[in-house]
Design a protein around this nucleic acid. Sequence first.
DNA 1: CCGATGACTGTTTTT
DNA 2: CAGTCATCGG
Length: 742
Amino acid sequence: MSQLLANLNPEQLQAVTLPPQHALILAGAGSGKTRVLTTRIAWLIQSGQVDPSGILAVTFTNKAAKEMLARLGAMLPISPRGMWVGTFHGLCNRLLRAHHRDAGLPQLFQILDSADQLAAIKRLLKTLNVDDEKFPPRELQHFINGQKEAGNRPHAVEAWDDFTKQRVQLYQEYEAQCQRESVVDFAELLLRTYELLERNEPIRRHYQRRFRHILVDEFQDTNRLQYRWLKLLAADGAEGGAALLCVGDDDQSIYRFRGAEVGNMRDFEREFQVKNVIRLEQNYRSYSNILDAANAIIRFNTHRLGKNLWTDQGAGEPIRIFEAYADSDEARWIVEEIQGLVRDGRSRAEIALLYRSNAQSRVLEHRLFSAGIPYRVYGGLRFFERQEIKHALAYLRLIANPDDDTAFARVVNFPTRGIGARSIEVLQDAARTYNTSLYATVPHLTGKAGTALGQFLRMIEDLRRDTGPLTLPELIDHVLDRSGLRDHYKSEKEGSERLENLDELLNAAANFVAEQQAGAPGADPADPGEHRQLADFLAHASLEAGDHQADQGADAVQLMTVHSSKGLEFDVVFLSGLEEGLFPHENSILEAEGLEEERRLMYVAVTRARERLYLSFAQSRMLHGQTRYNLRSRFLEEIPAGLTKWLSPPSPRAALGGATGGAGGAYFTSSAKPAATQREPRPAFASLPGGLRIGQNVSHAKFGQGVIVAAEGGGSDARVQVNFGSAGMKWLLLAVAKLDPA
DNA sequence: CCGATGACTGTTTTT
DNA sequence: CAGTCATCGG
C-alpha cells in the first residue's frame, strides 16, 4: 500500500486518496493524469473500500482502456476482472448485448461505423427517391448524429421550417431502416443505452447499486449525451449514488467538431456540487522552454478554467523553427534532421512527426521511404476500414445477421456474379412492398433477377450452416474461399497486398479469440451454435479500428495527426505545416470557437515533446492538386521569442488583421544565427511586372499585408491574387492596385 | 450486365 | 492528386 502511494506529489496523493465523493481533477499535460487514475483505482481496491466489480472506468480510446488494465494488472495482486473498463461506446455495446431484449434489439445486432452509416444513408435516399443534392448524405449524417447526441428521437426534434421537417422525416426513415436491419450506429449505441437505463428502473437500479466508483478520463471530450449517461448511472439510488471522479483538461479539448462539450466540466462542478477540485499543474514530461511556449500559446484563449503548467527540470533546449520553400523541402529537411538525430544515437521510436491533417503524411512518408528510414503511420485508413477487409466483414455480418442490408448491398455483387443495378433495383422495390430485408425478400422474386440472387442466397445459407461448428479463424478462412474473395484478389494485379491483409484478418481473429479466452471467461457465457463469438468479433472490428499497422516492435519513426498524438509523449517532436489555413485550419479560422480549438490542438502538439521540439512551415504547399501559398501560422507568433531559435532566417510575415500579435512580434532571438544549410532562393516562380513574383509578400494600403498566390493575364491586363490573411483573398489589377513589396 | 474511361469534387480532426 | 461517380461501348 505504501508502495502504491510512494513518489506521488501532494496534489496527486490528495486526488488518489480522496474520500468517496464527487471530484474534478484538472490535470495538465504530462502531470501524471493516467497514473493518478490507475493508482486511485488500485488504492480503492487494495484498501478494501470497494470490490473490483464496483468500479466503472471510462476512457476515451480503446488503447487507453487497454493500457489502464495493463497498469492495474501490474499494480494489483488480484486480477482486475470484474471491473468495467472501456470507452463509452464499448461499455454501451456491452450493456446492450446483455440487455438486448429490453433495449429492443436482437442479440446479434451489428454496429455501423461512420462509413457504414453514410452508405446506409445513401441507400435510404435512393430507395426513397430523395434528391441527394438537396439533402447531402454527409450533412444528413451530421444532422442525425447531432440529434441523437442531443437525446432527440425524431418526434422530439423541434422543426419549424420545411427543410428541417423534411430532414426529421428522413431521420425517422433512417431509424426505421436501422431497426429493420438490426444495425446500430455509434450515436445510437449511446442513446439506446441511455434510454434503456432511463426507462427500465430495475436495470438502472442494478447498475446504480453495482458501481460505487465511476472514473472518467478525458472528461473534457465527453458530449452531452455521455454526460447525461454518467449522471444517470451516478444518480442517487437506494444506496446513495456512485462517487464520480472526472479527470480532464479543458485546454486539451479537441473534439468539439464531434460534439464534445467542454462545458460539461463546469456543469459537473455545479450540478454535483463538487467540493473536491484538484489541479495537477506540475509537469514531469518537458523542459520549461517547451512548457513556457505551450503556456504562452494557450493564454490567448479565453474562457479557460485556468491552469499553469510548471516544471523543475530546467529550461532545456530552445525550440527550433524552420522555414522551407515548399512542402517537399520541409520534408527533406525533416528527414535530414532525423538522420542526424539517429546518428547521435537517438532511437527512431522516440521521434514523432506530427501534422494537422492526414493528407500531410504523404510527402513525409515519401521522403522517409526513399531515405530508407523505418516509420510507422498511425491513423489514416485503418485496418478494419480497408475495402477488402470490409468486404470480408460484410460476408461475416450476413452470416451473423442476414437482415443487414448494408452488408448485403456491399457484397451481393462482389466479386461480380451477374447481379447488376437493375436486379438490385427490383429487389429493393420488392423489399419495400413486403417491408422485409433484402435478404428475406429474395425468395419472393421470380425471373432472371431471382435466379442469380437465389444463388447468392443459397451461398450465404450454406455458409451459415457449414460454419456453425468451426472456430472463428476457420470460419473466416472458409468464408474467404467460398465467397470468391480470395480468388478475386488473386487474379487482380495489385491484389497481393490485399491478400496479405485478408490473411492478417485471420490473425486478428485468432488473437481476438485468444484474448477473449484469457480475459474474462466468466463475463458472458457464450451460447454455442449462435455465432455469438462472430458477433463479438464484428463488434470489436467496428469499435476498434485496429492498430494492425506496421510492426509494432520495430524501431520506427512515429507519424500521426496531432489529434491521435493526444496522451502520447516523445523525446523529439517535429510539428510540420504550421501555416495559416492548415494549422489553424481554414475551416476553423473564421469562428472564434473554432480558432480556440485549433489553439488547443497546438497546445496538445507542443506538450507532446519531452526534450526537443521542432516547428516548421513551408511557403508553398501542394493541396487538392494545386500549389498554395500560405502565411506562416499565427501560433508561431504566439511563442515568446526568447524560447525559440530559427534554423533559417525568418522572412517578414504579413500581418494578420490584428487578431493576435502578442508575444511582442519579435522573431529573432539572441541566439539566432543564419543557418549554414540555407540554400539560394530558387527562381521557382515566374517574374511579374514590377518585380513581383508569386509567393512574394506585399503590402496594400487598404488590405494590409499579404502574399501573392497566383497571377494571370499580361501587360496592362496583368492581375494577381493576393492572400491578405484575415482581410481575405483578392484579385487585384496590377495597373490599378498599388502593391509594394514587403 | 460489365468494365473502362473520364469528369468532377473535395478533405480537419475520430469513437 | 486520388477517390468517387457518371457515362459509354462491348
